[in-house]
Design a binder for these strands. Structure first.
Lengths: 162, 162
DNA sequence: ATCAATGCAAATAATTTGCAAAAAG
DNA sequence: CTTTTTGCAAATTATTTGCATTGAT
């Protein structure tokens, strides 16, 4: 019996907490469950709202104190789409090197992977005297529908595909 | 007689202002000169400080109101290194698709370009139904000196190479 | 003259923090 | 018991904005 990606992520994060001798409080559990039960990108505020549905005692401070743990574990990464607040992406357990394309107009986000890019990256990085710890590639583009019709048919469609 | 990259950038930005019917005030001129006289990455606060050396009447508000013009022109891009404030990179006139490697430990930043990555990017992007408007690739890594000696010899060396 | 652009200082909003109380181990 | 973690509310800090004035065209 193998775990799904999300169960695996949850397990790995719990191990991460254990290694650092951090306690499993009910609030942390609710936050962890929330983070890995979704595949959506979220803001701190959204995470607070969602986690409170599982455990109303979760506070904003705890959410903000927990987020750095996720990023430190490498299971969640921060994305900067130039919006006011940061976005968090919980899909890195399954796809540790995935990238993003963002539509300039409708903000639709598509995730993709490329072994080829990964290889070139590590070659260049090595030549420059570094080794890769992590990478983040973000392409801003236009939907072809926008190019053709001048308007983006996906307006307000924020689904994330792979 | 051809312009240097920085002179070219300045010229292009002035044209950008003209196209938008924006006025060339002395403050804007000081800010533009400051931005394109450096190759360093800078924060809004640094830009304010530097621009004030050329024209002490430059205010923080004007700096913040001018920065979006630079990014809109495509001649400057915002970088997110996970620090408190945003960093701005004025080197895009010469190298419109350059990328960054950041050392995890000493924060040294190296810029690099790769035609090969650019090509793969546009191919993937096209297959996904988009066209590339811009891209941002950021690799976090470790200096080999860090890997070997456990310490980064470049500590506090923030030079930017290409 | 006209209207955009400015400086100032106040407002905003995301994130962080001090502290006393609560809960994990 | 001891130490970590919590919620609360106040603090912080980068960035934005309203407004009366200045300056470019």
């Amino acid at each position: 019996m193998s775990l799904t990606g999300k169960e695996e992520a949850k397990k790995r994060f719990m191990e991460f907490l254990a290694e650092k001798n951090l306690r499993i409080t009910s609030q942390r559990q609710a936050i962890v469950d929330t983070v890995f039960d979704t595949e959506e990108h979220f803001t701190a505020e959204q995470l607070l709202e969602w986690a409170r549905k599982k455990d109303p005692s979760v506070s904003r401070a705890t959410v903000y104190r927990t987020l750095p743990l996720f990023t430190e574990s490498g299971l969640v990464k921060v994305l900067d789409f130039g919006k006011d607040s940061k976005y968090y992406d919980p899909n890195y357990a399954d796809h540790p090197n995935h990238n993003h394309i963002i539509c300039q107009d409708c903000d639709r986000i598509v995730e993709f992977e490329s072994k080829q890019i990964e290889e070139i990256e590590s070659e260049i990085t090595r030549k420059l005297g570094f080794s890769v710890a992590s990478q983040k590639l973000q392409i801003t583009g236009q939907c072809t529908s926008l190019k053709n019709k001048g308007e983006c048919k996906n307006k307000s469609d924020c689904s994330s595909a792979r």
